[in-house]
Design a protein around this nucleic acid. Structure first.
Lengths: 254, 254
DNA sequence: CGTCCTATTGATGGGGTTCAAGGCGTGTGG
DNA sequence: CCACACGCCTTGAACCCCATCAATAGGACG
């Protein structure tokens, strides 16, 4: 994994300072918190279904996924975690995980003791609020995923997913122009979107054919951001951004 | 809406005291909290998409839903709220709602000022933890909904949904035996499960034909709980119950 | 230079949608 | 008290999106 674009600062700083009203100095304290940093290789399980986790986990770099398997062996990827996301389902209550959490790429995660975390949250309320906001974002993304699966066609699902990933990478400061490296195989995309890998392939070809994106298997380049957003009925209200900030910057970045 | 079964105590008490380690006296304080109680009629909007809500809302009685509409007018019901659920997407951070919240049946909701709520949570940590747990449950349910939509067939989706609703009603003490009143039209079920109303009708008939359930449009009666659970690959780990308590009581209740 | 993994493309079939018509119960007004 | 309307359920028929099966191609890697 080579570094993408200008990412000298932590994705947390980018997301929470630039896109939420958190004081940069407060957030810096988060990086000095007592923790254990762990490097995961692509494919590593971070937390298996049924395991009980006693630490709060944050994703510093790399892509991670939450998934479930049905009895007949089909996989559903429910959510994709990007740098600056909270990996642990619950920050306070640690229950047995109801799903797998697995590294898609090589990743770096940070493990924090719940007591440390709670102390930090009481000391630094602004950051606590920011993580609340992040958790609201994840819920919004989950709900959007439900709409995608329930009421959108295959082409639209793919386009919609790409726009969401792009937007979230943008929030974390991991892309500047409208293209990004996607570490998902077509098979993975299929398992995110409830489709077959074959059909994902065909619809990807169609999106390219329509001129909306370029795609070569590892790199997604969105040719027509607004056009694609309109094509697949994408909007970003579920990310709970202040005003239209992100949209404005998004346009600026094209 | 006539009262269902033995529901003399609050659904909150039933859910959090009987199925979570909350002290009953602590939880009683929740019912004495400063609040405004509002009665909603079936069909009333509680919160429209885009509106900003400044109060924390709890559902005391009735069924409520979260939904979204796509550009072409299709509705996706993302989540169904039952008594004892938290209606407000976030307890602390109040953002603009990214979805509609609407009463399915006549309902009673309780509005609490965020400051009051925060004070209550700091005073009564055990209840704060319980609501954290509830919020984790909702996330688990959302993820389960994603699996349902992405990787299950129509019959299985319906069966799976019915079992989940039953289980949640059971947690809130709103059912005793394995049947319950379902206020959802077949059209609503279709919009929960990403199907057409026509196909929902046919698959409901099939479930009845297979002997798994009885269904007359308003009443669902599960004939073979374990058989149905096995049929549609249902398990309740996403509800984060302590041990197999609920399963045991479920069996006892049949 | 073979092996493995992923992408790609064709052919076939099925689960589910869509369109359309009819039935049934309930309420409502003449 | 009947007639009509309306909402919801039900059933049939045609069609289509997408899954499945299968075979080929194209790297990456040892």
């Amino acid at each position: 994994m080579r570094k993408q674009s200008v990412n000298l600062e932590s994705p947390f700083v980018h997301r929470f300072v630039r896109h939420y009203q958190v004081d940069e100095d407060d957030l810096k304290k988060f990086h000095e918190i007592a923790c254990r940093e762990v490097h995961c290789a692509a494919g590593d399980d971070i937390l298996k279904r049924g395991e009980k986790l006693t630490q709060v986990i944050f994703l510093m770099s790399g892509w991670v996924m939450r998934s479930r398997y049905t009895r007949d062996g089909n996989r559903q990827i429910m959510h994709i975690l990007l740098p600056s996301d909270i990996v642990t389902p619950g920050v306070f209550v640690t229950t047995h995980s109801d799903h797998h959490i697995c590294a898609i790429t090589d990743s770096i995660i940070r493990l924090v003791e719940p007591t440390v975390m709670q102390q930090f949250f009481t000391d630094t309320r602004s950051v606590a609020a920011a993580f609340w906001w992040a958790s609201q974002q994840e819920q919004g993304i989950l709900r959007e995923q439900i709409v995608r699966l329930g009421r959108r066609s295959a082409v639209h699902r793919i386009a919609h997913l790409f726009l969401e990933l792009y937007q979230r990478l943008f929030l974390a400061g991991l892309v500047d122009s409208a293209n990004f490296t996607i570490p998902l195989k077509q098979n993975d995309i299929a398992d995110v979107l409830g489709l077959s890998n074959v059909h994902v392939n065909r619809m990807l070809r169609r999106l390219v054919g329509l001129g909306y994106i370029d795609y070569n298997g590892t790199q997604v380049s969105i040719q027509d951001l607004d056009g694609l957003a309109s094509f697949c009925d994408f909007d970003l209200s579920h990310l709970h951004l202040d005003s239209t900030l992100a949209t404005a910057e998004k346009r600026g970045a094209v």
